[in-house]
């Protein structure tokens, strides 16, 4: 479903990602963990075809992420870390625009926009300008934008970053509901308890290199840790 082989990205003299080999199975929720600056966002941008790999390759649904980026995005939804929104469009108008960008005709784009706004629980805010949105609402709208074309794969870059506990829980619930539909999710996050609850497996990245790919239980076994050891403790041990 998602596959990278020797994927590397160099920015000038800095090697941001160093030979990433990773495979995410269909229907799997993969947690993508790592300290700040470890290369998570770079990986995600490479997967989205927004950056060109320096070496190696990445593919989603069998399509090359760079060479076939346009066709790929029909089946992939993307929530960036800091989503851009047009300040003076309403939530529904933004959804309608993005549905249009995915090639849906005006009527269908409108229908999808309304449905997505309702699905994500924007409520009355769907008719408000995004400039008036709180960060939580902006993130929820951005998630709706990622879902408006019903993608088979969802790539989320720190979706709960900056959200308050209630907002973070709402976001987690929305992701869990989506994952329950059997979709593949690639989730970059710093919230390790959420990753433990949501993800089938986690991949841990440090200084651009993959340190581990395993289920939380496998990680505990690898470090001879008991079931009471949290993923956070394992993560800190691994990246210390």
């Amino acid at each position: 479903m998602i596959e990278t082989a020797g994927l590397s990205k160099r920015f000038g003299s800095t090697l941001a990602l160093d030979g990433l080999d990773l495979r995410v199975e269909p229907g799997e929720v993969m947690g993508f963990l790592g300290p700040n600056g470890s290369g998570k966002t770079t990986t995600i941008r490479l997967l989205m075809g927004l950056l060109r790999p320096s070496a190696g390759r990445a593919s989603i649904l069998g399509r090359d992420c760079h060479a076939d980026a346009v066709a790929l995005k029909r089946d992939v939804g993307y929530l960036p870390d800091e989503p851009f929104l047009y300040p003076y469009l309403t939530g529904v108008e933004t959804l309608e625009l993005v549905a249009g960008l995915h090639g849906f005709a005006a009527g269908e784009a409108r229908r999808r926009a309304e449905a997505s706004a309702e699905q994500i629980g924007l409520g009355a805010a769907a008719r408000a300008y995004t400039v008036t949105y709180s960060l939580g609402m902006k993130k929820r709208l951005a998630l709706a934008l990622a879902l408006v074309h019903e993608p088979r794969v969802l790539i989320l870059d720190e979706p709960t970053n900056g959200l308050d506990p209630a907002g973070a829980r709402q976001m987690r619930t929305a992701i869990a509901e989506y994952a329950a539909g059997g979709r593949t999710i690639f989730l970059s996050t710093h919230l390790l308890d959420a990753a433990e609850r949501l993800c089938h497996r986690v991949a841990i990245l440090q200084q651009g290199r993959l340190r581990a790919v395993a289920t939380p239980a496998e990680l505990r076994a690898r470090f001879d840790a008991g079931p009471e050891t949290t993923l956070e403790e394992l993560f800190l041990r691994m990246t210390a």
Partner: peptide, 15 residues
Amino acid sequence: AGSPENEFLLARPIT
């Protein structure tokens, strides 16, 4: 090219 709006648009199926 990596301006927020361009990234917003390039995240869609657009060449």
